[in-house]
C-alpha cells in the first residue's frame, strides 16, 4: 500500500500540474516565448532530437569522466592523507581553497589555459574541481573513523599498514564514500553545465550551450527540453548511485537496515 503510494502520488501530481499548465497557457494566451505549453516542449523533443541527443551525449560524457576522475583522485588523496598527517597538513588548505572559490569565477581562467580549441578539457577540469572535494573530505573522515580497538587488534596480530588500510579502514569508509558519491554525481553535472555557460559559445556543444543558444534565439521550448533532460540526467545519476549504495551496504550498514525492516 505504502510502496504503491510512493510512486503514484508524485506521478499523479505531475500529470495534474502538466494538464493545468497546458490549459492555462491556452486559456490566458501566454506568449510562446515566455512559457511554451507542455505539448510545444514535447514537439521540440521531436524536432530538435538530433541536436538534443548530441548535446546530451557531450554533457553526459563530461559528467561521467569528471566523476570517475574525482572518484579516483579523491580516494587516492584521502588514502594519502590518512597515511601521512604531514601531507594532509600541507595539501588540505589548498583543497579547501579550490572548493570554496566559485567555479564560475575560475572557469574563464581554465578556459584560457587549456585553450578554446580544447574546450572539452576545460569543462572536464571544471566539473572535476566541484565533484572532487566531497569525495576527498568524506573519505578522509571515513578512513580516520576506524574503531581504535580494531586497529589495536590488527596491530596485535602483526598487521601491516597496508592490511589495516585494505581490510579495516577502506571497508569502514565505504558508507562515507558512497554518501559523497551521491553528492559528487550531482555536482559533476552542475559543474559541467556551469562551465559551459562560463566558456560561452564556441566549440562547447553540451546541454549548457544548447540552453544558452536556444535562449538567444527565444526558442524557449528547446530550453525547457534541455532542462528536462538535465533533470532526468541528475535524477538518473542519483538513483544509480543510491542503488549502488544499497547493493554494497545492505548486509551490514544501519542506513540500509532500516529500509529493509
Amino acid at each position: 500500500m505504502k510502496r504503491w503510494l510512493t510512486y503514484s502520488v508524485p506521478v499523479a501530481l505531475g500529470i495534474a500540474v502538466l494538464a493545468f499548465w497546458e490549459w492555462a497557457v491556452t486559456h490566458w494566451q501566454v506568449p510562446r516565448f515566455v512559457l511554451p505549453a507542455p505539448s510545444a516542449i514535447a514537439q521540440s523533443f521531436v524536432d530538435d532530437r538530433a541536436q538534443l541527443a548530441a548535446a546530451t551525449w557531450t554533457t553526459f560524457r563530461i559528467v561521467i569522466e569528471a566523476f570517475v576522475l574525482a572518484l579516483v583522485t579523491g580516494v587516492a588523496l584521502a588514502i594519502l592523507f590518512a597515511q601521512s598527517r604531514i601531507v594532509e597538513l600541507a595539501l588540505y588548505p589548498y583543497a579547501v581553497i579550490l572548493q570554496v572559490t566559485p567555479i564560475i569565477a575560475i572557469a574563464p581562467l581554465i578556459v584560457i589555459w587549456v585553450g578554446y580549441e580544447h574546450i572539452d578539457r576545460a569543462l572536464l577540469i571544471l566539473a572535476w574541481i566541484v565533484a572532487f572535494f566531497p569525495i576527498l573530505a568524506n573519505t578522509t573522515l571515513g578512513l580516520r573513523s576506524a574503531d581504535r580497538n580494531l586497529i589495536d587488534l590488527f596491530r596485535l596480530y602483526g598487521a601491516s599498514r597496508w592490511q589495516i588500510l585494505w581490510k579495516l579502514q577502506l571497508p569502514g569508509a565505504l558508507p562515507y564514500l558512497l554518501g559523497a558519491m551521491k553528492i559528487s554525481g550531482g555536482l559533476a553535472l552542475i559543474g559541467a553545465v556551469v562551465a559551459e555557460f562560463a566558456a560561452g559559445t564556441g566549440t562547447a556543444t553540451g546541454l549548457g550551450w544548447t540552453i544558452t543558444e536556444a535562449g538567444n534565439r527565444l526558442h524557449i521550448e528547446t530550453m525547457f527540453a534541455a532542462l528536462a533532460i538535465l533533470s532526468v540526467l541528475g535524477v538518473a545519476i542519483f538513483f544509480l548511485l543510491s542503488a549502488l549504495e544499497w547493493a554494497l551496504l545492505r548486509h551490514w550498514h544501519e542506513s540500509a537496515v532500516s529500509r529493509q525492516e
Binding site: D147, L150, L153, G172, W252, H253
Partner: peptide, 15 residues
C-alpha cells in the same frame, strides 16, 4: 600467542 577481548564486541560490521 596473545588474544585480546575488549569491553565492546569490536566486530567488523561488514563481515
Amino acid at each position: 600467542e596473545i588474544g585480546f577481548v575488549f569491553q565492546e564486541p569490536t566486530l567488523m560490521p561488514w563481515r
